[in-house]
Design a protein around this nucleic acid. Structure first.
Lengths: 163, 163
DNA sequence: ATTAATCAGTTGCGGATTGCTACTTAATAT
DNA sequence: ATATTAAGTAGCAATCCGCAACTGATTAAT
């Protein structure tokens, strides 16, 4: 087993803080809705079938955590617009990765519509762990290392990668 | 009662079925433990500080969903070994992605130790969405498309990518 | 101007889930 | 024979979730 994180630090990772922000019931689905272009309370409510009080609570929490912004619209001040922040938008790989996993291993999901690259309209590649040179890595290829013990890449190598 | 149902009919993607399996409180942290080499009930319990009944419930659920296997050890039959299946192991990109996000956006997390490629001991690349040719894509580069409307790549192109 | 409709919530309540602690059961160690 | 360990269960309080009905502030219709 190559993959074992030293015990001392096992509790010291970003997961708990991530889960505090989006680890509750419905939060992932609300995020998916946001990525799909939902912006209003009633849109989320009818698209997800979530209870109104829970939705209000989750939207509030996502706003508190800086994942969504909440702005009343100028031309109709009843309407509130929820929008992803940059912080929120960077959850897309996780949401998509979880979705891909569910599609791959869940019970018969047809998987449409599909996320595609705008440029060529081809489906995105499955979310994977990759090395600095973009090789795809599996569990067996990985291990933990103290940040201080990592040797920086040689300059020419880095240049080649950047290109 | 069908309290799991709301997730299932909340949309036509794999997210609900993924959340059904691992969307509950603690499941992600139990998975992280499994990826870090924890294999036994008491190990999870003391590493995570989770209540015993909840842990039993979550482990059982992960086993039910084929994410972990549960095998009594031959040389000490009190001991039960929990191990990731292939299905479970394929959650690593999601767990790592969420962790990276938490490290990036959470409150001051030093981020050590770090996951590295065994081959050259260089840190893994951040989890990203990539195009079929491995270009990294952001929100602005993406759109949804009906699966039926996607034109397959030309044969020579596919061959080049596979290589 | 008055009334109706819409949007974004909030409230109250019953049932479900979670967390804590103590207990149990089976296998091993002394 | 007794103690200890591993892996759970059981009971109970506190919290969370889901449903339906209600409020309050705009905006639309008559």
């Amino acid at each position: 087993m190559g993959l074992r994180e030293p015990f001392d630090d096992a509790g010291e990772c970003g997961l708990p803080s991530a889960l505090e922000a989006i680890g509750e019931r419905w939060s992932f689905l609300i995020l998916r809705g946001a990525f799909n272009g939902l912006h209003h309370f009633e849109e989320f409510q009818s698209a997800l079938g979530i209870a109104r009080n829970i939705l209000a609570n989750r939207l509030g929490r996502l706003v508190e955590h800086g994942i969504l912004t909440r702005t009343p619209l100028a031309d109709d001040r009843r309407k509130i617009e929820y929008r992803l922040t940059e912080k929120g938008a960077e959850l897309l790989p996780v949401v998509v990765g979880l979705r891909q996993w569910g599609e791959r291993w869940g019970i018969g999901i047809p998987s449409t519509p599909v996320l595609v690259d705008k440029r060529d309209e081809q489906p995105i590649r499955p979310i994977r762990i990759t090395a600095h040179d973009k090789r795809e890595l599996g569990l067996a290829d990985l291990c933990w290392k103290q940040a201080a013990d990592i040797r920086p890449l040689e300059e020419p190598v880095r240049a080649a990668i950047a290109a």
